[in-house]
């Protein structure tokens, strides 16, 4: 339920997100595709000793109410995430390309639905 990324913090006995100590099961991020044909969506995380058990645990933890038909499990430490400092360079160029959005174009009402 959380987020596939984490920040580091030295105030506690801390480990990088998903990098478990030898005694702890690794953290997995769970993505589920529901019945309506939408793409897989991040639903949350859980701990499991390996990928197979992660998928089984996901079935038990995240589909108690028939939420999903397909499950992906990704080890949290294997996820590459953009960092907030890159927000500008990553997304701002797209802001300039307003013509990518349908509302950019004025179509007369007489033409009908488009």
């Amino acid at each position: 339920m959380s987020s596939p990324e984490s920040s580091s913090y030295d105030g506690t006995e801390n480990v990088e997100h998903g990098k478990a100590r030898p005694t702890e099961w690794p953290l997995w991020e769970i993505f589920i595709r529901g019945q309506h044909g939408l793409s897989h969506r991040h639903v949350g995380s859980l701990h499991a000793p390996d990928a197979e058990m992660a998928i089984k645990n996901a079935r038990d933890v995240y589909t108690r109410r028939n939420e999903g038909v397909s499950i992906w499990a990704v080890e949290a430490c294997k996820i590459a995430a953009s960092s907030p400092e890159e927000k500008g360079p990553l997304y701002e160029p797209a802001n300039a390309k307003v013509y990518r959005h349908p509302t950019f174009f004025d179509i007369p009402d007489d033409v009908g639905a488009m």
Partner: peptide, 11 residues
Amino acid sequence: PVLEEDIALAN
């Protein structure tokens, strides 16, 4: 022994 197992056993 662990939360994930608790939930699975209940199922």
